[in-house]
Amino acid sequence: MHEQLAELRDRAEQVVAPDTWSYLNRGSGDERTVQEAHDAWGRYRLRPRVLRDVSTVTTELDLFGPWRTPIGIAPTAFHALLHPDGEVATAAGAAASGAPMVVSSRATRRLEDIAAAIDGPWWFQVYLMRERSITASLIERAAAAGATAMVLTADTPYVGHRARSAALSRPLPLTDEQALTNMRDHLPADVADIWELIDQRADLSLTDIGWVADVSHLPVIVKGVLRADDAVACAEAGASGIWVSNHGGRQLDRVVPTAVALPEIVAAVGDSVPVIVDGGVRDGFDALTALALGARAVMLGRPAMWALAAGGSDAVTAMLAELSAELAHALGLAGAARLGDLDPTMVTTR
Protein backbone atom coordinates (compact mmCIF):
# COMPACT_ATOMS: atom_id res chain seq x y z
CA MET A 1 0.00 0.00 0.00
CA HIS A 2 1.11 3.55 -0.75
CA GLU A 3 2.77 5.09 2.34
CA GLN A 4 0.45 8.10 2.27
CA LEU A 5 -2.63 5.87 2.22
CA ALA A 6 -1.31 3.84 5.14
CA GLU A 7 -0.82 7.03 7.14
CA LEU A 8 -4.30 8.26 6.27
CA ARG A 9 -5.81 4.94 7.31
CA ASP A 10 -4.01 5.03 10.65
CA ARG A 11 -5.04 8.65 11.31
CA ALA A 12 -8.63 7.91 10.34
CA GLU A 13 -8.84 4.92 12.66
CA GLN A 14 -7.82 7.15 15.55
CA VAL A 15 -10.69 9.61 15.04
CA VAL A 16 -13.53 7.42 13.75
CA ALA A 17 -15.91 5.64 16.12
CA PRO A 18 -15.10 1.89 16.36
CA ASP A 19 -18.47 0.71 15.02
CA THR A 20 -18.22 3.15 12.10
CA TRP A 21 -14.68 1.98 11.40
CA SER A 22 -15.91 -1.61 11.30
CA TYR A 23 -18.78 -0.67 8.98
CA LEU A 24 -16.39 1.10 6.58
CA ASN A 25 -13.69 -1.54 6.37
CA ARG A 26 -15.37 -4.89 6.84
CA GLY A 27 -16.19 -7.26 4.04
CA SER A 28 -18.69 -10.09 3.63
CA GLY A 29 -18.22 -13.71 4.58
CA ASP A 30 -14.69 -14.47 5.75
CA GLU A 31 -13.45 -11.36 3.88
CA ARG A 32 -11.36 -13.31 1.41
CA THR A 33 -12.35 -10.98 -1.42
CA VAL A 34 -11.17 -7.96 0.57
CA GLN A 35 -7.86 -9.65 1.37
CA GLU A 36 -7.14 -10.60 -2.25
CA ALA A 37 -8.05 -7.28 -3.88
CA HIS A 38 -4.73 -5.41 -3.69
CA ASP A 39 -2.50 -8.46 -4.08
CA ALA A 40 -4.14 -9.28 -7.42
CA TRP A 41 -2.85 -6.04 -8.97
CA GLY A 42 0.64 -6.81 -7.66
CA ARG A 43 0.81 -10.03 -9.64
CA TYR A 44 1.15 -8.06 -12.87
CA ARG A 45 4.52 -6.88 -14.16
CA LEU A 46 5.12 -3.92 -16.46
CA ARG A 47 6.75 -4.06 -19.90
CA PRO A 48 7.77 -0.46 -20.63
CA ARG A 49 8.55 1.00 -24.02
CA VAL A 50 11.75 2.95 -24.66
CA LEU A 51 12.79 5.79 -26.94
CA ARG A 52 9.42 7.51 -26.67
CA ASP A 53 9.06 11.25 -26.20
CA VAL A 54 7.80 11.62 -22.63
CA SER A 55 9.06 15.16 -22.07
CA THR A 56 5.44 16.10 -21.46
CA VAL A 57 3.11 13.64 -19.75
CA THR A 58 -0.62 14.18 -19.22
CA THR A 59 -3.23 12.18 -17.36
CA GLU A 60 -6.19 14.11 -18.78
CA LEU A 61 -9.19 12.31 -20.22
CA ASP A 62 -12.79 12.85 -21.27
CA LEU A 63 -15.19 10.28 -19.87
CA PHE A 64 -18.73 11.55 -19.42
CA GLY A 65 -17.00 14.79 -18.49
CA PRO A 66 -13.48 16.26 -18.67
CA TRP A 67 -11.04 15.26 -15.93
CA ARG A 68 -7.41 15.99 -15.09
CA THR A 69 -6.87 12.49 -13.72
CA PRO A 70 -8.41 9.04 -14.29
CA ILE A 71 -8.19 8.27 -10.56
CA GLY A 72 -11.52 9.11 -8.98
CA ILE A 73 -13.86 8.42 -6.07
CA ALA A 74 -16.27 5.49 -6.15
CA PRO A 75 -19.74 5.82 -4.62
CA THR A 76 -19.74 5.24 -0.88
CA ALA A 77 -22.55 5.90 1.56
CA PHE A 78 -22.92 8.05 4.65
CA HIS A 79 -19.90 10.38 4.55
CA ALA A 80 -21.30 12.35 7.50
CA LEU A 81 -20.16 9.48 9.70
CA LEU A 82 -16.59 10.43 8.85
CA HIS A 83 -16.63 14.23 8.62
CA PRO A 84 -19.09 16.95 9.64
CA ASP A 85 -19.38 18.26 6.08
CA GLY A 86 -19.91 14.78 4.65
CA GLU A 87 -20.12 14.48 0.87
CA VAL A 88 -19.70 18.23 0.41
CA ALA A 89 -16.15 17.93 1.74
CA THR A 90 -15.43 14.88 -0.40
CA ALA A 91 -16.79 16.63 -3.47
CA ALA A 92 -14.69 19.74 -2.85
CA GLY A 93 -11.59 17.57 -2.50
CA ALA A 94 -12.29 15.71 -5.73
CA ALA A 95 -13.06 18.91 -7.62
CA ALA A 96 -9.83 20.57 -6.51
CA SER A 97 -7.84 17.68 -7.95
CA GLY A 98 -9.86 17.42 -11.16
CA ALA A 99 -10.92 13.88 -10.32
CA PRO A 100 -14.20 12.11 -11.12
CA MET A 101 -16.60 11.63 -8.23
CA VAL A 102 -19.66 9.42 -8.01
CA VAL A 103 -22.28 10.58 -5.49
CA SER A 104 -24.12 7.81 -3.69
CA SER A 105 -27.88 7.44 -3.44
CA ARG A 106 -27.17 7.11 0.29
CA ALA A 107 -25.48 10.51 0.56
CA THR A 108 -25.91 12.45 3.80
CA ARG A 109 -25.84 15.90 2.21
CA ARG A 110 -28.32 17.28 -0.30
CA LEU A 111 -27.48 16.56 -3.92
CA GLU A 112 -27.69 20.22 -4.82
CA ASP A 113 -25.13 21.17 -2.14
CA ILE A 114 -22.75 18.43 -3.28
CA ALA A 115 -23.09 19.54 -6.89
CA ALA A 116 -22.36 23.15 -5.89
CA ALA A 117 -19.11 22.03 -4.21
CA ILE A 118 -18.03 20.29 -7.42
CA ASP A 119 -19.12 23.03 -9.85
CA GLY A 120 -18.43 20.71 -12.76
CA PRO A 121 -19.21 17.20 -14.02
CA TRP A 122 -20.03 14.36 -11.64
CA TRP A 123 -21.87 11.05 -11.72
CA PHE A 124 -24.78 9.78 -9.63
CA GLN A 125 -24.97 6.25 -8.29
CA VAL A 126 -28.40 4.62 -8.56
CA TYR A 127 -29.86 1.91 -6.38
CA LEU A 128 -33.19 0.68 -7.72
CA MET A 129 -35.31 0.80 -4.58
CA ARG A 130 -38.41 -1.20 -3.85
CA GLU A 131 -40.44 1.98 -4.26
CA ARG A 132 -39.40 2.84 -7.81
CA SER A 133 -40.86 6.36 -7.68
CA ILE A 134 -38.27 7.34 -5.05
CA THR A 135 -35.47 6.19 -7.34
CA ALA A 136 -36.97 8.10 -10.27
CA SER A 137 -37.21 11.29 -8.20
CA LEU A 138 -33.58 11.03 -7.12
CA ILE A 139 -32.43 10.41 -10.69
CA GLU A 140 -34.33 13.46 -11.92
CA ARG A 141 -32.90 15.62 -9.12
CA ALA A 142 -29.35 14.48 -9.83
CA ALA A 143 -29.72 15.18 -13.53
CA ALA A 144 -31.16 18.62 -12.82
CA ALA A 145 -28.26 19.33 -10.44
CA GLY A 146 -25.69 18.64 -13.16
CA ALA A 147 -24.83 14.94 -13.08
CA THR A 148 -23.33 13.84 -16.40
CA ALA A 149 -23.86 10.07 -16.03
CA MET A 150 -25.83 7.56 -13.98
CA VAL A 151 -24.09 4.59 -12.33
CA LEU A 152 -26.55 1.73 -11.89
CA THR A 153 -25.32 -0.58 -9.13
CA ALA A 154 -26.25 -4.08 -10.26
CA ASP A 155 -24.58 -6.36 -7.70
CA THR A 156 -26.77 -5.54 -4.69
CA PRO A 157 -30.17 -7.22 -4.96
CA TYR A 158 -29.82 -7.35 -1.20
CA VAL A 159 -27.02 -6.58 1.23
CA GLY A 160 -24.38 -9.26 1.65
CA HIS A 161 -23.71 -10.70 5.10
CA ARG A 162 -20.97 -8.58 6.60
CA ALA A 163 -18.29 -10.08 8.80
CA ARG A 164 -17.11 -8.78 12.18
CA SER A 165 -20.51 -7.41 13.21
CA ALA A 166 -24.17 -8.11 12.77
CA ALA A 167 -25.75 -7.11 9.47
CA LEU A 168 -27.35 -3.69 9.76
CA SER A 169 -29.61 -1.70 7.49
CA ARG A 170 -27.39 1.26 8.31
CA PRO A 171 -24.51 1.91 10.75
CA LEU A 172 -25.66 2.67 14.28
CA PRO A 173 -24.21 6.20 14.66
CA LEU A 174 -26.32 7.43 11.75
CA THR A 175 -29.62 9.18 12.45
CA ASP A 176 -32.68 8.73 10.25
CA GLU A 177 -32.46 12.43 9.36
CA GLN A 178 -28.94 11.96 8.00
CA ALA A 179 -29.68 8.70 6.20
CA LEU A 180 -32.81 10.10 4.52
CA THR A 181 -31.33 13.46 3.55
CA ASN A 182 -32.11 13.11 -0.14
CA MET A 183 -35.05 10.72 0.12
CA ARG A 184 -37.37 12.29 2.67
CA ASP A 185 -38.83 14.77 0.16
CA HIS A 186 -39.94 11.85 -2.02
CA LEU A 187 -41.36 9.42 0.54
CA PRO A 188 -45.06 8.52 0.37
CA ALA A 189 -47.17 9.77 3.26
CA ASP A 190 -48.03 7.52 6.22
CA VAL A 191 -45.33 4.93 5.58
CA ALA A 192 -45.09 2.25 8.24
CA ASP A 193 -41.58 1.03 7.34
CA ILE A 194 -39.48 3.61 5.50
CA TRP A 195 -36.42 1.37 5.38
CA GLU A 196 -38.31 -1.36 3.56
CA LEU A 197 -39.34 1.13 0.88
CA ILE A 198 -35.78 2.30 0.21
CA ASP A 199 -34.17 -1.11 0.34
CA GLN A 200 -32.77 -2.40 -2.96
CA ARG A 201 -34.97 -4.31 -5.37
CA ALA A 202 -34.15 -7.99 -5.95
CA ASP A 203 -35.86 -8.18 -9.35
CA LEU A 204 -33.46 -6.09 -11.45
CA SER A 205 -33.12 -6.95 -15.13
CA LEU A 206 -31.40 -5.69 -18.27
CA THR A 207 -34.47 -3.61 -19.08
CA ASP A 208 -33.71 -1.40 -16.07
CA ILE A 209 -30.72 0.03 -17.93
CA GLY A 210 -33.09 1.57 -20.42
CA TRP A 211 -35.44 2.72 -17.67
CA VAL A 212 -32.65 4.68 -15.92
CA ALA A 213 -31.60 6.16 -19.28
CA ASP A 214 -35.17 7.18 -20.07
CA VAL A 215 -35.67 8.85 -16.68
CA SER A 216 -32.31 10.63 -16.63
CA HIS A 217 -31.68 11.30 -20.35
CA LEU A 218 -28.04 10.56 -19.49
CA PRO A 219 -25.51 7.78 -20.18
CA VAL A 220 -25.87 4.78 -17.87
CA ILE A 221 -22.84 2.92 -16.50
CA VAL A 222 -23.56 -0.52 -15.04
CA LYS A 223 -21.50 -1.16 -11.91
CA GLY A 224 -20.75 -4.55 -10.38
CA VAL A 225 -19.88 -6.54 -13.52
CA LEU A 226 -17.41 -9.43 -13.16
CA ARG A 227 -18.22 -11.55 -16.24
CA ALA A 228 -17.55 -10.93 -19.92
CA ASP A 229 -20.94 -12.23 -21.01
CA ASP A 230 -22.72 -9.92 -18.55
CA ALA A 231 -20.67 -6.99 -19.84
CA VAL A 232 -21.69 -7.74 -23.43
CA ALA A 233 -25.34 -8.16 -22.45
CA CYS A 234 -25.35 -4.84 -20.60
CA ALA A 235 -23.77 -3.04 -23.54
CA GLU A 236 -26.28 -4.56 -25.94
CA ALA A 237 -29.10 -3.48 -23.59
CA GLY A 238 -27.98 0.13 -23.82
CA ALA A 239 -25.30 0.61 -21.17
CA SER A 240 -22.89 3.42 -22.07
CA GLY A 241 -20.19 2.08 -19.75
CA ILE A 242 -19.23 -1.05 -17.80
CA TRP A 243 -17.84 -0.82 -14.27
CA VAL A 244 -15.84 -3.83 -13.11
CA SER A 245 -16.39 -4.05 -9.37
CA ASN A 246 -16.96 -6.55 -6.59
CA HIS A 247 -18.40 -3.89 -4.26
CA GLY A 248 -15.25 -3.72 -2.19
CA GLY A 249 -15.72 -7.30 -1.08
CA ARG A 250 -18.93 -6.34 0.73
CA GLN A 251 -21.39 -8.47 -1.25
CA LEU A 252 -20.66 -12.04 -2.40
CA ASP A 253 -17.42 -13.23 -0.84
CA ARG A 254 -14.85 -15.32 -2.75
CA VAL A 255 -15.60 -13.65 -6.08
CA VAL A 256 -12.72 -13.01 -8.47
CA PRO A 257 -10.61 -9.90 -7.86
CA THR A 258 -11.37 -7.10 -10.30
CA ALA A 259 -7.76 -7.30 -11.51
CA VAL A 260 -8.59 -10.80 -12.76
CA ALA A 261 -11.97 -9.94 -14.29
CA LEU A 262 -10.90 -6.72 -16.03
CA PRO A 263 -8.90 -8.10 -19.02
CA GLU A 264 -11.59 -10.51 -20.21
CA ILE A 265 -14.30 -7.86 -19.91
CA VAL A 266 -12.25 -5.31 -21.87
CA ALA A 267 -11.61 -7.94 -24.55
CA ALA A 268 -15.31 -8.81 -24.73
CA VAL A 269 -16.70 -5.28 -25.14
CA GLY A 270 -13.81 -3.93 -27.22
CA ASP A 271 -14.26 -0.28 -28.10
CA SER A 272 -18.05 -0.38 -27.90
CA VAL A 273 -18.20 1.09 -24.38
CA PRO A 274 -15.61 2.36 -21.89
CA VAL A 275 -14.70 0.19 -18.92
CA ILE A 276 -14.12 1.48 -15.38
CA VAL A 277 -12.67 -0.50 -12.49
CA ASP A 278 -12.33 -0.32 -8.72
CA GLY A 279 -11.18 -2.73 -6.04
CA GLY A 280 -7.87 -2.81 -4.22
CA VAL A 281 -6.17 0.02 -6.11
CA ARG A 282 -3.73 1.51 -3.62
CA ASP A 283 -1.02 3.32 -5.62
CA GLY A 284 -0.15 4.77 -8.99
CA PHE A 285 1.32 1.48 -10.21
CA ASP A 286 -1.98 -0.32 -9.58
CA ALA A 287 -3.70 2.45 -11.52
CA LEU A 288 -1.19 2.20 -14.38
CA THR A 289 -1.74 -1.56 -14.56
CA ALA A 290 -5.52 -1.16 -14.70
CA LEU A 291 -5.31 1.52 -17.38
CA ALA A 292 -2.89 -0.54 -19.47
CA LEU A 293 -5.28 -3.48 -19.23
CA GLY A 294 -7.96 -1.32 -20.81
CA ALA A 295 -9.76 0.54 -18.03
CA ARG A 296 -10.51 4.17 -18.83
CA ALA A 297 -10.76 5.23 -15.17
CA VAL A 298 -9.80 3.76 -11.81
CA MET A 299 -11.94 4.42 -8.74
CA LEU A 300 -11.12 4.40 -5.03
CA GLY A 301 -13.55 3.55 -2.25
CA ARG A 302 -12.10 3.11 1.22
CA PRO A 303 -8.94 5.22 0.62
CA ALA A 304 -11.08 8.26 -0.16
CA MET A 305 -13.00 7.71 3.07
CA TRP A 306 -9.79 7.37 5.07
CA ALA A 307 -8.65 10.70 3.68
CA LEU A 308 -12.00 12.35 4.41
CA ALA A 309 -11.93 11.19 8.02
CA ALA A 310 -8.27 12.05 8.51
CA GLY A 311 -8.31 15.57 7.11
CA GLY A 312 -11.46 16.55 5.25
CA SER A 313 -11.45 17.97 1.75
CA ASP A 314 -7.78 19.01 1.87
CA ALA A 315 -6.70 15.46 2.64
CA VAL A 316 -8.91 14.10 -0.16
CA THR A 317 -7.29 16.53 -2.60
CA ALA A 318 -3.78 15.70 -1.40
CA MET A 319 -4.40 11.95 -1.62
CA LEU A 320 -5.73 12.15 -5.18
CA ALA A 321 -2.97 14.52 -6.24
CA GLU A 322 -0.27 12.24 -4.83
CA LEU A 323 -1.60 9.13 -6.55
CA SER A 324 -2.10 11.01 -9.81
CA ALA A 325 1.46 12.35 -9.66
CA GLU A 326 2.74 8.84 -9.06
CA LEU A 327 0.70 7.63 -12.03
CA ALA A 328 2.09 10.39 -14.26
CA HIS A 329 5.65 9.54 -13.24
CA ALA A 330 5.08 5.85 -13.90
CA LEU A 331 3.49 6.66 -17.26
CA GLY A 332 6.61 8.48 -18.38
CA LEU A 333 8.90 5.70 -17.22
CA ALA A 334 6.71 3.20 -19.08
CA GLY A 335 7.11 5.18 -22.31
CA ALA A 336 3.60 6.63 -22.39
CA ALA A 337 3.05 10.37 -22.73
CA ARG A 338 -0.71 10.09 -22.39
CA LEU A 339 -3.27 7.52 -21.28
CA GLY A 340 -4.05 6.56 -24.87
CA ASP A 341 -0.48 5.32 -25.33
CA LEU A 342 -1.12 2.44 -22.93
CA ASP A 343 -2.20 -0.99 -24.12
CA PRO A 344 -2.34 -4.56 -22.76
CA THR A 345 1.06 -5.51 -24.21
CA MET A 346 2.61 -3.31 -21.53
CA VAL A 347 1.58 -5.65 -18.69
CA THR A 348 2.10 -9.35 -18.13
CA THR A 349 1.59 -11.93 -15.41
CA ARG A 350 4.65 -13.93 -16.51
Score class of each variant (00 low, 15 high):
E3T: 15
A6H: 13
A6I: 13
A12T: 03
E13L: 09
P18T: 07
P18M: 08
S22L: 15
Y23H: 12
G29I: 09
R32S: 12
R32Q: 15
D39W: 14
W41L: 08
R43A: 14
P48M: 13
L51M: 14
V54D: 03
S55M: 10
T58N: 07
L61N: 09
L61G: 02
T90A: 15
A94G: 08
A99K: 03
R110N: 03
D113I: 05
D119Y: 05
G120V: 06
W122N: 01
F124M: 06
T135L: 07
A144E: 10
M150F: 09
T153N: 06
P157D: 03
Y158H: 13
R164W: 14
E177Y: 12
L180A: 07
M183S: 11
H186E: 14
V191I: 13
I194T: 15
D203S: 07
L204W: 00
I209S: 10
G210W: 13
G210D: 12
V225I: 15
V225N: 05
V225H: 11
C234I: 01
A237T: 12
V244A: 04
N246W: 07
L262A: 07
I265R: 05
V266A: 06
D278A: 05
R282P: 01
G284H: 10
F285H: 10
A287G: 05
L288N: 03
A295Q: 03
V298A: 05
R302G: 04
M305T: 05
W306D: 02
S313T: 03
D314W: 04
L327W: 03
A330E: 01
L333N: 11
R338F: 01
T348N: 12
